[in-house]
Computed example of a mutant assay.
Amino acid sequence: MLPSPKPRVVVGLSGGVDSSVSAWLLKQQGYDVVGLFMKNWEDDDDSEYCASRQDWLDAVSVADRIGIDIEAVNFAAEYKDRVFAEFLREYAAGRTPNPDVLCNAEIKFKAFLDHAMRLGAEKIATGHYARVRETAPGFELLRGLDASKDQSYFLHRLNQSQLSKTLFPVGALHKTEVRRIAAEIGLHNARKKDSTGICFIGERPFREFLNRYLPTRPGPMKTPDGRLLGEHVGLAFYTLGQRKGIGLGGSKDGSGEPWFVARKDMASNTLYVAQGHDHPWLLSHSLRASDMSWVAGVAPSAGTVHEDMQGRSRGALSAKTRYRQADSACRIGELDDGGFSLAFDTPQWAATPGQSAVVYAGEVCLGGGVITKTDRLVAEAMTPAIARA
C-alpha cells in the first residue's frame, strides 16, 4: 500500500534563505507545500529601504526551483492597524516597542495563519530559529539550537492553538548548515544577507523615518546631577542605553567615558544622559511587566524554579530583557492580573519600558510581558531633587 500523503503546509516565503530551506525540507518530508509571500508595507515600497519587490522575485525563484506553488497576499492594512499604529503610540509615549514581537503575534501567526487555513492547510511553517515540542499537557516553545540565531524571544506571545499548527523546519539547524543546504540545492539566495531592519519596513535611518510620523519636541538634555548639556530633538527619538546619535561627541569633564541615554522624563520633557556603560542609572535589579502572555495558557508559579502542570521541576528560571542580551537568573514574584515582577541577582543593563521581558526554564520559553517599570540602582551622589524626578 502507498503511504498516506502528508498534510498541506503553507510556508511563509519571504525571499530569504531560512524560509526557502524550510519549504524545501518540508517538501522532502512529503508534505503538500504551498508558498505564501506576505506584503505588509506600502508607504514607500519603491524606496531603497523597502525591497519587497526584489523579495517577491526571490521567493518566486525559490518556489520555481523547488517545485511548489506560490501566491502573494497583502496584509498592509492589518499591519498598519495592528502593528504600526501601536508602534507609533508607544514611541509617542516615550517607550521603545519591539515591532517584531507584535508582528509575529498579529500578522505572521494570526492574519497569515487564518489565511493559510482558508487555503486548506493543516499547518503553517516559517523560517524562524525556534522549535515546537508536543508534550502530554500541550505544546512547548523551545529555543533554536543555534544560540546565535535563536528567535524564541520574538515568538514568546504564541499560544497553544498557534503552536499546534506551526512548524519551524530550520529550528534544529545552525545557520551555516541552512546556507550549505541552500547552496547544494542551487538556491540563488543561499548567500543573501539576513534582514535586520524593522519587521517588513526594512533597514533605514530610523530617526528620519520616525520623524515622518511623529513631531519633534525639543527639550533640555541633562546629566543625573542636573547639569544642562544641551538640547534633545524629542524624547520619542531616543531609547535607554542609546550611545550613538545623542549629539555629545566629546566628554564634558575630561573622563573620556561615552555618553548613554539613561532616562526620559516625559513630564518635564527632559532627556537624562550619563557617562559610562555601567552608570547606576543604566542598571536595574528588578522590573515590572504587564500585558502578560504565557505559552502554556497559565502563568508559571512564583519563585526561581519552573514546575510543569504535573508538578515536575523543569529547571531554574532565567529571563531576557532585550533580544541580544544574555539570559540572567531571575525570580518571578507579585504575579497577578495586572502583570508580574522579575528580580535579578545580576543587575540588568538598560532594561527598557516597551521592550519584552521573556522568561525561560532551560530551553523552554515560557512567555513574558512588556516592561513597564524598572528599579534602578540609583547613585547615592544624586541630589534629592533629581532622585525624586
Rank of each mutant, 00 (worst) to 15 (best):
R243H: 14
L167W: 03
G254K: 11
A387K: 12
F109T: 04
V370W: 00
G368C: 11
K244M: 12
Q29G: 03
V170Y: 06
K6C: 00
I185A: 05
A379M: 03
S251K: 02
L141D: 02
V10N: 02
H279I: 06
P99K: 12
D327V: 14
L173P: 00
T372K: 12
P220N: 13
K244G: 09
V33E: 05
L36Q: 03
K123A: 05
F84R: 14
Q348K: 15
T352S: 15
N159L: 04
P300L: 06
H232F: 08
E307K: 09
R82N: 11
A93C: 05
S164R: 09
L26P: 09
G234W: 13
L271P: 05
Y49W: 14
S251T: 13
R324D: 15
Q29W: 11
I386C: 13
S284Q: 09
Y79E: 14
G144W: 04
K264Q: 13
Q54D: 12
G219M: 06
E71D: 13
W56K: 00
P384M: 13
R89Y: 01
S14T: 01
A296Y: 07
D81S: 10
G67F: 05
E86P: 05
G202C: 10
H156D: 06
K108A: 03
A381H: 11
L2K: 06
